[in-house]
């Protein structure tokens, strides 16, 4: 689960909405088109009732799509969802880089 604490990088950061979206999208992606809500719930560390609201929102935004598999809904990440993840992680990378940059700014600012 992506709780904002990476490695030994200090105390956990409070999960924001974008973190929750990314968490759910990553877990759904892991199941390659066969993500059941219960498994996503376990993977994302989120209760099913709260997760359903989030998943519905992600479907409405076009970041996830829902299909039926053996009579049960399963979820799959869309190209737009993957795009969200790409941007999300790139931004997290820059923010981490800025926070860890030495005072002379060698690795902290874009040249």
């Amino acid at each position: 689960m992506l709780n904002g604490r990476e490695g030994n990088a200090g105390p956990p950061r409070r999960r924001e909405v974008s973190d929750l979206y990314a968490t759910v999208l990553e877990v759904v992606k892991h199941y390659h088109g066969a993500a059941r809500i219960t498994r996503v719930s376990y993977g994302a560390g989120m209760p099913v009732d709260r997760l359903r609201v989030l998943v519905d929102r992600l479907v409405a935004l076009g970041l996830l799509k829902s299909e039926e598999l053996d009579g049960r809904p399963v979820y799959e990440i869309t190209a737009r969802g993957q795009e969200f993840l790409d941007v999300y992680w790139k931004l997290r990378g820059y923010v981490d880089g800025l926070e860890r940059a030495p005072p002379d700014g060698r690795t902290g600012r874009r040249g």
């Binding site: 993840l85 992680w89 790139k90 997290r92 990378g93 820059y94 880089g97 690795t107």
Partner: peptide, 24 residues
């Protein structure tokens, strides 16, 4: 291949490295 950030605190030895955001 890292979409966001990759950090190697020791030495690294390998083939291709692709980082979308930050490599340390």
């Amino acid at each position: 291949e890292a979409g966001g950030t990759a950090e190697l605190k020791g030495d690294g030895k390998g083939g291709s490295v692709e980082v979308g955001g930050v490599l340390t």
